[in-house]
């Protein structure tokens, strides 16, 4: 698992370049973006390495990574579920769908199931409010989802995996 214990050489090069610049610490978010782009999430090991290489305290790195919702702290599941909690979707019962996903998967928003199969995230408006409430699983969009349907989507995926 060497790629999970050491940062990619391109990212290291980027950090080294940032260190040459004035206010090197202000590139922290850019560095974290690059890591998430490459690995899909920010692991503690990677963040610790960023702290050392950029000479920014780990607590600051951790503070920034947990402040912004965009940063993921766990790897995405094979099925990455994104649930719109924008106004229209919410009014149409997205909170009940969230509840259905939570109880079906046993995880909270931002988390990944222990079998690494499912991850759950919320998004803001996707711009298709007429289809509310909207759920996306990987690149597939599901419209006018009901709580029962949410559970069905999970079961279908589980069935496919077992087959």
């Amino acid at each position: 698992m060497s790629d999970h214990t050491k940062l990619d050489s391109e990212i290291i090069k980027f950090i080294d370049e940032c260190r040459e610049k004035e206010h090197a610490d202000s590139y922290l978010i850019a560095v974290l973006h690059k890591i998430q782009g490459k690995y899909g999430y920010l692991s503690d090991v990677h963040m610790h390495e960023v702290a050392q290489r950029l000479q920014v305290p780990s607590s600051t790195v951790s503070g920034v990574a947990t402040f912004y919702h965009f940063f993921r702290l766990q790897p995405k599941g094979k099925y990455h579920i994104s649930l719109c909690l924008g106004t229209a979707c919410f009014v149409k019962g997205a909170d009940k769908i969230l509840e259905a996903f939570r109880s079906e998967l046993g995880i909270e928003l931002g988390e990944t199931t222990s079998d690494k199969l499912f991850s759950l995230e919320c998004s803001r408006c996707l711009g298709v409010c007429a289809l509310a409430p909207v759920v996306t699983i990987n690149d597939q969009v599901y419209s006018k989802v009901s709580p029962t349907q949410a559970a069905e989507l999970i079961n279908k995926a589980r069935f496919e995996e077992a087959a």
Partner: peptide
């Protein structure tokens, strides 16, 4: 450092 945000903000060591 302060981790997380809003109501969930908590003062804690890194990670």
């Amino acid at each position: 450092s302060q981790l997380h945000r809003g109501f969930n903000t908590v003062v804690s060591p890194a990670f």
